[in-house]
Design a protein around this nucleic acid. Sequence first.
DNA 1: GTCTATAAAAGGATAGAC
DNA 2: GTCTATCCTTTTATAGAC
Lengths: 193, 193
Amino acid sequence: MKRGPYAKGAAKREEILSVALEVVAVKGCRKASNREIAERVGLTQAGLMHHFASREELYQEVLRARDIRDHEMFFAPDPTIEGFFAVIAHNAEVPGLVRLYVEFSAEASIPEHPAHAFFLERYAWLRDGLSGVIHRAQDSGTIGPAVDVSAAVDLLVAAADGLQLQWLNDHAVDMVARLRRLWEGIVAVSHAA
Amino acid sequence: MKRGPYAKGAAKREEILSVALEVVAVKGCRKASNREIAERVGLTQAGLMHHFASREELYQEVLRARDIRDHEMFFAPDPTIEGFFAVIAHNAEVPGLVRLYVEFSAEASIPEHPAHAFFLERYAWLRDGLSGVIHRAQDSGTIGPAVDVSAAVDLLVAAADGLQLQWLNDHAVDMVARLRRLWEGIVAVSHAA
DNA sequence: GTCTATAAAAGGATAGAC
DNA sequence: GTCTATCCTTTTATAGAC
């Protein structure tokens, strides 16, 4: 149990982040409202705005918290391709998170959006991690030298994003199996002349 | 010049579809409003609702019109992988369309959404077309027999979707080059044991 | 930290005139 | 086919009390 002046506020914050996902999971990001989220955590809408100044900040912080947790669980100390697959596998357990990510990142692709910078930084961070994965796989000999790392990373990220959209439409889509196949293709080509 | 009782209505409809894209291009799909679209075509919001009964129907019809046009331009009579690349290359010329597609398809991934069925059918249609492409490439010997067609199609569609999101965030992303690389990988693996 | 109250705006939709 | 007028709903956000 945490103590100190911020313990209660922090706990409420966590609760909000978690409940936001439940609402988004069933209503979608566009139709989810701060009011409903607030009421589900036993607050009024005004009460919720004390913790998050805007709808956009709330959603951004949900995703940021996810990234921190995933990083600790699956990537520390060094990212591997299996860790990447594990993140995706874990995503299939949290539909609200996938929906929020797909919908909110699309919404935020407009440069003026409050969360635009967040997603740009996140992309850079993700690309960095995956580049490291490929380079280490080259060092260990798993993967050959003939790879355009940048192109491979773009494809992995794009496929992961696109597969999440497919998965939202049909939970039978096996995101990890598809990504593994892509990875195998990258490995195969990397050994070619 | 078209004649007949529907000529004017049809022309106005086309104009609305086109202007909707301009608005979505700069405001994004979430912030775009029927009112603004209506005013830009010289109508009131109520006037616009005569042509499209709801926001969702309007956006759905924009995308449907796009698909019909793309199909005529790039896929008739038979789809090829180059036609697929040509569609993507063309997308890079119409940012509003890409933004609408990415944002609206994400929004519509919720089963209750009015456009949900549209996107499901579109997926099936797209998958069909790409499956045909692969099978014909096999017949002509371009591609080997060792392909899981379904998996390859999933990856192509996912990558195309994900790359469009990347491209929205950074127009320097070369969607076609990335997709070509994916295709080359699929071709390479298809010749493996 | 949370509430009440309220603003203020905007959105989508409809009825009925022309 | 389009407008006027209007409705109703919903949303985010703020001010100030407790």
